[in-house]
Simulated scan of single mutants.
Amino acid sequence: MNTNRATGAPEGGVRETARRAKTRERLLDAAFRQFCEHGINGTSIEAITDDAGFTRGAFYSNFGSKEELFFALAERENRLRLESVRERFDDMVAMLGRTGRKPDPELIEEVLADILAAQPENRPWCLLNSEFRLLAMRDPQVAPLFLESSHAFQRELASMVHAALDSAGLRILIDPLHLTRLLVDQFESAMQDAILSGVEDTERAARDTVMRTLPPLVHSLTEIRSTDQR
């Protein structure tokens, strides 16, 4: 039997795992397109598999339901957003700590603008996540899974926010998770308003809205750590 030299696993198993991962990604990509165009309830499993070029069997070998697929899609989208923030982490810390004192709202605005500019397109994901949130609110079986997915993203983002502020010598006056939820809720609300208003550039409209509120909010909820706290 041929084996993979790096892992010692059978080469056929490695190829099968890679093929399965590729199939899964194509199904997720197809679901994203179909959900954006027709909505979650308006999209059938057949529409997803036809778009991806697979059969229903390929779908059910990877996902148990459309809801399970959506949670996999949410995990992927959240991971992309967290990775974009993580890539900017060192720059974020450097920007916040460059004055040696509590950063003013203008500097915080600069940091937030840098982070938001690196994010993947938010409009389609806002549409899908808002729709799925409503579905979860109506379905008690989906609700706890939706909450855990949302809270897992917020917890990881909160950890990154806390680490960045701490590295810059700053302390958050409230629980970092509560601050993060405020930031996320503000941005989601701004994106929803931008979509509802029908503006052409929803990303820019949402950023303009949050920049009027988030920098002074973050400024008011942070302070320089005292020497005995360092």
Rank of each mutant, 00 (worst) to 15 (best):
A72P: 03
C126R: 12
A52C: 03
R79P: 00
L217P: 01
R24Q: 14
I195N: 05
L173Q: 09
G39V: 05
S197D: 13
M160Q: 10
P10H: 12
L182N: 10
S226P: 04
E67M: 07
L177T: 12
R98K: 13
R86V: 09
N78Q: 13
T180A: 02
F63I: 12
N41A: 12
R225G: 07
E110N: 08
L196S: 13
A136C: 01
D51K: 07
G42V: 04
A206E: 02
T17Y: 02
G39W: 00
R33S: 09
S130D: 14
E16L: 14
L157F: 11
A72L: 10
L116P: 00
Q34W: 00
H219M: 04
A194W: 03
S65E: 00
A52P: 06
Q141K: 12
L112A: 12
E25T: 14
W125T: 06
A164T: 05
Q186V: 11
A168G: 04
C126G: 10
L196T: 13
V93G: 06
R225F: 00
A118M: 06
G57F: 05
V161S: 01
R101P: 01
I115G: 01
A113G: 11
E11S: 13
G57W: 09
V142A: 06
K22I: 02
S167L: 07
A58Q: 06
P124S: 07
L145G: 08
M1I: 05
F153G: 04
L165W: 07
L69C: 09
T222R: 02
E16G: 02
A47W: 01
L116V: 15
N41W: 01
S220A: 14
A136F: 00
R138H: 03
E203G: 09
R98I: 13
E25F: 03
L173V: 13
M160G: 06
E121V: 14
A9G: 05
N2D: 11
P124Y: 00
V184C: 03
G64D: 14
D114V: 12
E11Q: 14
S220N: 11
H38K: 15
R230A: 11
F71D: 00
F32M: 06
R24M: 09
L196Q: 13
R88I: 13
T43E: 02
F153N: 02
Q141C: 03
K22H: 10
D166T: 15
D185L: 08
A47V: 06
A74C: 08
T55W: 06
I115S: 00
T213A: 14
G8I: 14
E131R: 09
R15C: 05
I195F: 00
S150H: 03
F187D: 07
D193Y: 04
E46L: 12
G169Y: 00
F32T: 08
S84M: 08
V93D: 04
K66M: 09
F71I: 07
M160A: 15
